[in-house]
């Protein structure tokens, strides 16, 4: 079975995020009111050929822990898991 798993990697709250802070300042400079904070992260979409959703989840978690995120400064979250049929339609 083919699954699409989305992994979101964000800087930890305790870690400074210069990229997010710069984007926030830029939005403010562009005239968007009320930008209290921006945090910038990355999103990975994995297509996994695995036997079940549970395996897709645990595999993605393992990948996030070993490579996709640096646990010292980042937090990885699996945000969606979707099964894809052979024709590529959900």
């Amino acid at each position: 079975m083919l699954f699409t798993v989305t992994v979101e990697v964000m800087p930890k709250d305790s870690v400074a995020d210069p990229e997010g802070a710069t984007i926030a300042r830029s939005l403010d400079a562009l005239g968007f009111p009320g930008v209290a904070q921006v945090r910038a992260g990355k999103v990975y979409q994995l297509s996994l050929e695995v036997p079940s959703e549970d395996v897709a989840r645990s595999t993605a978690q393992d990948m996030a822990g070993k490579l996709l995120a640096n646990p010292v400064i980042e937090l990885a979250t699996i945000t969606t898991i979707a099964r894809i049929d052979v024709a590529g339609v959900r």
């Binding site: 400074a16 210069p18 990229e19 010292v72």
Partner: peptide, 16 residues
Amino acid sequence: TEAHLLPGALQKNISL
């Protein structure tokens, strides 16, 4: 640091 032979991590410069 990525190999955990040293602690911590190196982030983007604060000035970007």
